[in-house]
Every structure is written in C-alpha cells, then in structure tokens.
Design a protein around this nucleic acid. Sequence first.
DNA 1: TATATTTGCAAGTAAAGACTTGCATATTTA
DNA 2: TAAATATGCAAGTCTTTACTTGCAAATATA
Lengths: 114, 114
Amino acid sequence: MDSSQDIFKAIADPTRREIIHMVSKQSLNLNSVAEKFDMSRQAVSLHVKILTDCGLIIIKKQGRERYCEAKLDSLREISAWVEQYKKFWESRLDSLENYLLKIKSAPKNAKRKK
Amino acid sequence: MDSSQDIFKAIADPTRREIIHMVSKQSLNLNSVAEKFDMSRQAVSLHVKILTDCGLIIIKKQGRERYCEAKLDSLREISAWVEQYKKFWESRLDSLENYLLKIKSAPKNAKRKK
DNA sequence: TATATTTGCAAGTAAAGACTTGCATATTTA
DNA sequence: TAAATATGCAAGTCTTTACTTGCAAATATA
C-alpha cells in the first residue's frame, strides 16, 4: 500500500538482487526473467512487482510483452546510508596498516608488553 | 544456522538500522539500547542477536552488563554491491546536468523540436 | 544474605513473505 | 477465427519474522 516501498527490504532478497543484476545489463520481458529462476513465473512476477513498487524497475509495454528496465536511481539512498559508516571500516583498515607498518619497522628484539 | 548471517537482511529492518546508528556513536549495554525503543527488551535483544550473528556488532561483557560495540566492516559488502550500480544514477545525473547546461546556454528564442 | 539489576532462554502468537496452482485476459500468429 | 504466447489476478499453503510474556541465571548492591 505504501507507494514508496522500502528499498532496503526490496534488495534484501537474493532473487531480487539477481533480477536487478539481469535487467541492469539489458531490458528483458517478464518471461525471460522468469526462465532464469527455478521457481514459477508468478513468483518471479511478484518479485518484479516489488521492484517496480519501489521504483528500481520500470515496465514498458510492447505489444503483449512487458519489458523490465533498470532504473536504479533510488539505490542512492542505500549508498548514502552505507557511506556514512565508511569511515568505520576505512579507519579499521588504517589502523591495521599502521599496525603492520609498526611491527615492520620495530627493532627485532623489542620487548613485548605483558 | 548459517554462521554468516545475511547482512542484506540484517540491515533491511529499520529498528536494526537504528541500533546500528546508536552503537556507532558509542557502545551501549543492552538495556540502554532497549530503552530507546517502544518494544520489549527481548525484542530488541533479538535484533541485537541478529546483528551480532552477521558480525555488525560485537558484545563485550563487563560485569553483568553486555556492551554492544559497532564493528561495521562487513558493511563493505553492501557498499561494493551498491557501488557497482553507481554509474547508473551518476550517468542519469550527468544527463540531467547536460540538459540543464544545454537549456541554459541555448539561445533564448531557439526553436523547439516538436 | 536478601534484594535489585542485567541479561538469557523458551514457548506462543500474529503478521508478513515467498511461494504454488488454477483460471482469466490481452495480443499475436496461423 | 482458432490456437499459441505473455501476462495478471486470486486463493491457499508453508515458512519466516517480529514480536510478546514468563521464568531462570548471573552479578552487583544494601
């Protein structure tokens, strides 16, 4: 019912992430998408619906077919969310690097703290 | 049962994202985390368990308290996933910028295509 | 030692999620 | 027009998720 479906939930499902990946390479009609999965067409169709609901995919009618086209703008929200924590793992990397540099440059028989 | 819990599912829940946000600022014991939410302590505790299962939070015992500490390294997986699609929305931005530049620099009475 | 505090564990519930099967509809092709 | 193709809609099932309440265990404080 919520017109802007939760994008975090949308990408939480591996099937949906795979659908995103497929249609990001080329637009595909529903059956082509469904064929790749070991589940019913309707199940895939439902996943696609969830993706269109949150705007990650748009549907373009072409005769009796519906082509799924990737429109990944709203992934920016995910990006923004995760990037705010980037310093966390970057600083961890930094301190690992510092540590490695330190033990590398330390005198061989330096006392260890107990 | 999966030892490396699905991190995409872990961050799909808004409560868990808020917990991440809280403990990213300072380590908090379980009760302090739970107080902030309008749900039972056990419910929050379960969310914390999901976060520890996928390694986003580590628990440090201190007397009878357990402190939740953010360890957001594995968010890198999310970052990597979303960044692979960055060009999608960046190129869209580009074309918007180009469009804006174009109409800005266009002669005032230029003919519009019909 | 008695009591309060912090937490964990277990059982139960209610709602959402991920499917399935069956049938209807629209469009194309023979 | 009849048959094939692409899709949508609806009902039902099975599983997972997000909680709840109640009780037990460990630690701290009076």
